[in-house]
């Protein structure tokens, strides 16, 4: 390599390429598979290590789900632990605490989903309406910043902003005159879902707006010009051109997100919870962590985790097939 190949080498290469076509071997079965492996052995070598990685780190743990049907004891392992049937699932669904956990998970997840979509789309639309390119870029850059901060940092910022003494939120609310006494935001369970939703929006609204803004710029500019000639106002143009124009992107992202309906986030809740808001803060992931790692009840924690994945799959496929039936864009 490096030096240009001679014409002779090229013709020889062409011969090599033509050869397998003439033979017309069966296109399935082991023999075919191994033949293809030999033909493309470099590509196989390139992907094999990572397929092995994928199998070990992503598929092998699925075998651990048998624990959900056992009374798993670490000392005995998978093979000698006693079978427990659906005992752990039955326990979960009759457990008062688990029901609360499910309530918290769904509530926070839905709040985050709806707030996230609405704010990100709104921001994208407003950014698109900015006429000054420089100002637009400054706003964008600043709005992306929180996405790059860790949840540890964000949780710290949120708890100081919400502090009783000297927290900016209380100071503002007092100055406007909305409240007379500072509120202990993180000490009241009922506020927790809202706090999580707001923190999530703060952290990710800029980042999530990127994709909608990209979709908006792909809308045909002539539509706007025509609408302007017809005398449509800015708001009407947004309502009748911009929003319909990004509809399919919104739907695809919604389907993808519905698959994460039980992923209400973990870090924010874990870092912002305290003994006083615990009843509203504990979600499925914290429940799994508490039972699994802290109390070493592996079977119960696995059952809860398995439940999460199965529900996610069901939601993903239903959302996808509903979109298909309605003739909308879909994921697969």
């Amino acid at each position: 390599m490096g030096e240009p190949a001679s014409p002779l080498a090229v013709t020889e290469d062409l011969k090599k390429v033509k050869k397998p076509k003439k033979q017309r071997k069966p296109r399935n079965g082991f023999k075919y598979f191994f033949r293809r492996c030999r033909e493309q052995k470099e590509l196989v070598w390139m992907s094999a290590p990572f397929l092995i990685w994928l199998f070990i780190f992503r598929y092998l743990p699925l075998g651990g789900w048998v624990m959900a049907f056992q009374d798993y004891r670490p000392a005995r392992g998978f093979f000698d632990s006693e079978w427990a049937g659906l005992k752990h699932f039955r326990f979960l669904f009759s457990d008062q605490r688990f029901m609360e956990v499910m309530r918290n998970t769904l509530a926070m997840s839905i709040i985050n989903l709806v707030l996230g979509f609405v704010t990100a789309i709104t921001l994208a639309v407003l950014l698109n309406e900015l006429r000054n390119v420089k100002f637009k870029r400054i706003v964008q850059t600043i709005s992306y910043m929180p996405h790059f901060l860790s949840w540890v940092v964000v949780a710290g910022l949120v708890s100081s902003a919400l502090a009783m003494e000297d927290g900016i939120v209380n100071i503002l609310l007092m100055n406007i005159g909305l409240i007379d006494e500072p509120i202990m935001f993180l000490g009241v369970g009922e506020y927790f879902w809202g706090i999580i939703g707001a923190s999530d929006v703060w952290k990710s609204v800029g980042w999530n707006s990127i994709i909608y803004l990209a979709a908006i710029t792909m809308i045909d500019q002539e539509q706007y010009e025509a609408a302007e000639i017809d005398g449509a106002s800015r708001l009407q143009r947004i309502r009748y051109i911009t929003l319909p124009g990004i509809r399919s992107v919104v739907i695809i992202l919604m389907i993808m997100n519905i698959g994460y309906i039980l992923e209400s986030g973990f870090e924010a809740q874990y870092l912002l919870r305290n003994p006083m808001n615990m009843d509203y803060a504990e979600n499925l992931d914290i429940f799994v962590l508490r039972y699994g790692i802290s109390m070493a009840n592996f079977s119960l924690a696995t059952a809860a985790g398995m439940f999460k994945t199965v529900v996610s799959f069901i939601f993903l496929f239903s959302a996808n097939s509903i979109a298909k039936k309605l003739g909308e864009a879909r994921l697969f």
Binding site: L54, R58, P61, G64, W65, G292, I293, A301, T309
Partner: peptide, 22 residues
């Protein structure tokens, strides 16, 4: 095959405990 094997794992998560044990 490779694409599908990877993409599936975006939604198929064994969960904390099985991964921990592994």
């Amino acid at each position: 095959f490779v694409t599908l094997a990877f993409v599936l794992t975006m939604y198929m998560n064994a969960g904390l405990i099985p991964s921990y044990l592994l």
